Simulated scan of single mutants.
Amino acid sequence: MTDPGARLDRERARTGERLARLRRDFLGVVDASRDSNADDEHDPEGATIAFERSQVDALIRQAEAHLAEIDAARERLAAGRYGVCESCGGRIAEERLEARPSARTCVRCA
């Protein structure tokens, strides 16, 4: 069995790194559009700058939510409830926790 605290720490570090990259990407899109006089609404090249900005923003929000889920899992670990399904009270399989360390429910209840 993998140490759940170490697993959560690794997941938090990976997510934090991803979030930092996404924030840099977002700033890059904003900076690139600041000095541009491109017609964002009628760009014949495809996706608009606003669309790209919106996509990156959505990914940032997902990463932030995932960090909150990891922090909640850390709280469950400290309280002795980590790995216990919040729906049925049964054990969450080690394989599920390995794949999704912040899992709140077992596969059956998910």
Rank of each mutant, 00 (worst) to 15 (best):
residue 76 R to L: 08
residue 86 E to C: 01
residue 104 R to Y: 09
residue 59 L to M: 11
residue 14 R to A: 04
residue 90 G to T: 14
residue 63 A to E: 07
residue 97 L to C: 06
residue 45 E to K: 12
residue 74 R to C: 01
residue 54 S to K: 07
residue 106 C to P: 14
residue 59 L to T: 01
residue 59 L to F: 09
residue 46 G to W: 11
residue 5 G to P: 12
residue 16 G to R: 03
residue 48 T to K: 12
residue 34 R to V: 11
residue 98 E to G: 14
residue 11 E to V: 11
residue 60 I to D: 03
residue 105 T to S: 13
residue 90 G to A: 14
residue 47 A to E: 13
residue 91 R to M: 10
residue 20 A to E: 11
residue 39 D to I: 09
residue 99 A to F: 05
residue 70 I to R: 00
residue 63 A to V: 06
residue 90 G to V: 10
residue 14 R to M: 01
residue 47 A to K: 13
residue 93 A to E: 07
residue 43 D to Q: 10
residue 37 N to R: 04
residue 79 A to Y: 02
residue 19 L to W: 02
residue 7 R to T: 13
residue 26 F to M: 03
residue 92 I to P: 05
residue 32 A to K: 09
residue 17 E to A: 14
residue 97 L to Q: 02
residue 32 A to G: 12
residue 80 G to P: 12
residue 5 G to T: 08
residue 27 L to S: 10
residue 1 M to F: 02
residue 85 C to I: 14
residue 36 S to L: 02
residue 84 V to A: 13
residue 38 A to N: 04
residue 109 C to T: 10
residue 10 R to D: 03
residue 6 A to Y: 03
residue 22 L to A: 08
residue 32 A to E: 05
residue 29 V to N: 05
residue 83 G to I: 08
residue 98 E to L: 14
residue 18 R to G: 01
residue 74 R to T: 06
residue 76 R to M: 12
residue 21 R to S: 07
residue 78 A to C: 07
residue 31 D to P: 08
residue 1 M to W: 05
residue 72 A to Y: 03
residue 101 P to S: 06
residue 89 G to W: 06
residue 88 C to E: 03
residue 1 M to V: 14
residue 85 C to E: 11
residue 83 G to P: 13
residue 62 Q to R: 10
residue 18 R to N: 02
residue 105 T to R: 15
residue 45 E to F: 09
residue 41 E to M: 04
residue 97 L to R: 10
residue 109 C to N: 11
residue 43 D to I: 12
residue 51 F to Y: 15
residue 2 T to R: 13
residue 46 G to C: 14
residue 29 V to W: 00
residue 95 E to I: 11
residue 49 I to C: 04
residue 95 E to W: 08
residue 101 P to L: 06
residue 7 R to H: 10
residue 86 E to Q: 13
residue 18 R to P: 03
residue 43 D to V: 09
residue 61 R to A: 00
residue 46 G to R: 15
residue 65 A to E: 11
residue 86 E to K: 10
residue 17 E to D: 15
residue 25 D to E: 08
residue 76 R to D: 11
residue 73 A to L: 05
residue 94 E to I: 13
residue 23 R to W: 04
residue 40 D to V: 03
residue 88 C to Q: 09
residue 34 R to F: 00
residue 96 R to A: 07
